[in-house]
Design a protein around this nucleic acid. Sequence first.
RNA 1: GGAGGUGUGGCAGAGCGGCCGAAUGCAUCCGCCUUGAAAGCGGAAGACGGGCAACCGUCCGGGGGUUCAAAUCCCUCCACCUCCGCCA
Length: 420
Amino acid sequence: MIDLKVLREDPDTVRASQRARGEDPATVDTLLSADERRRSVISRADTLRSEQKQFGKQVGKARGEERDALLAKGKELAAGVKAAEAEQAEADQVLEDAHRALPNLVDPAAPVGGEDDFVVLEHVGTPRTFDFTPLDHLDLGVKLGILDMERGAKVSGSRFYFLTGVGAQLQLALLNMAAAQATAAGFTLMIPPVLVRPEIMAGTGFLGAHAGEIYRLRDDDLYLVGTSEVALAGYHADEILDLSAGPRRYAGWSSCFRREAGSYGKDTRGIIRVHQFDKIEMFSYCKPEDATAEHQRLLAWEKEMLAKIEVPYRVIDTATGDLGTSAARKFDCEAWVPTQEAYRELTSTSNCTTFQARRLSIRYRDDNGKPQVAATLNGTLATTRWIVAILENHQQADGSVTVPEALRPFLGLDTIRPAV
RNA sequence: GGAGGUGUGGCAGAGCGGCCGAAUGCAUCCGCCUUGAAAGCGGAAGACGGGCAACCGUCCGGGGGUUCAAAUCCCUCCACCUCCGCCA
């Protein structure tokens, strides 16, 4: 949720933000009028309640006839209060619905436009030229005996897979390397629940426009997380944090589940786009004034990880129309995938400013000891998809794959060779 | 799955349907005392909403109900604890 103070004082900024996202600016006016109505309804209900409260005290002291008369009057007041409270509850609900429906304010620095209007911030590394025809990651994975999509489909359906043998080890090595980097950088490593309550899922902003992406267990009223961001954001819900020593940083290791509704036919080969994968996710809680700097730090940690797997990549500043509901700004790192001759997203870091924290009631004490809404940010450190970039970029003419230097201690292999 | 119990402020822990935003202890902060500290004494101190403000309202796990009036009575949901059963 956005700050209602901003809305009241500067509705044009909010409207502009909506337009930049390609969404309806009229929702801003819906919210404004809901806010005004709620305030007037509240002040009326408060007055009536106050009267009734004062009056009720007299009843307790009165005796006999006088008491009976007071009781009758009391009933009248109670009816009035009840009606006013019902109106207040309704106005509250209308406001909350409108408030939750509005996505975060975009950062003015983010490029305005749709999916293709991103700005490339930098290129790191150069795509390699092959003196043989490179295989794609699925062919490589099958030849190496480390990836089995067919049986994945047999057991669970399309977009499911088995990582087998060295493939499973490779993923563990990658995630362990990420966990080690995060721990060394001061993150608290977390293994969170992957099933969460509706209010937590809603709090992170995933139940709005993209609700169809999420697995839901109706019998238990729980959701499978699409990223551990969800659980890590919920971790400090309804708390007042001490941020005086700087941001609180967590690294979540979890499986992630995505329905990939509406992506039929897209990336159907291999493990680029799957229903279940594993990820190490960075998550920061910080003061709002530190959020922009923290965002740069998260990006730097992502680049540090990417350097370790030695693949060429570019960093993009995502356009406003392609931001998630909660994000004010988002940087993606996209690795070069030789067989697609394209850059594909490996990491994504979002600055959610106070949007998620306001929904989840996550606060901190400012220098005056006053509770204030915190800011939250997240970013990817490693995922199953990284295996695609590692295999394709490091493949050799003989069908083997050279393991990047930094990964070797974690995998215990220099080279992944075809199973004999 | 069945039976029972518990849920109050940062923590512990009282609380008769009205005098309860809530005793008390610990912790915290500010004074006094002290060379300094501890102890002792005195005082302050919750969150949220509305209002320029004075101030008003809400909040005793969540939601609903009874009542003129609910932390207190009723229903329901959730969490935790104990016992039984089941599964591993």
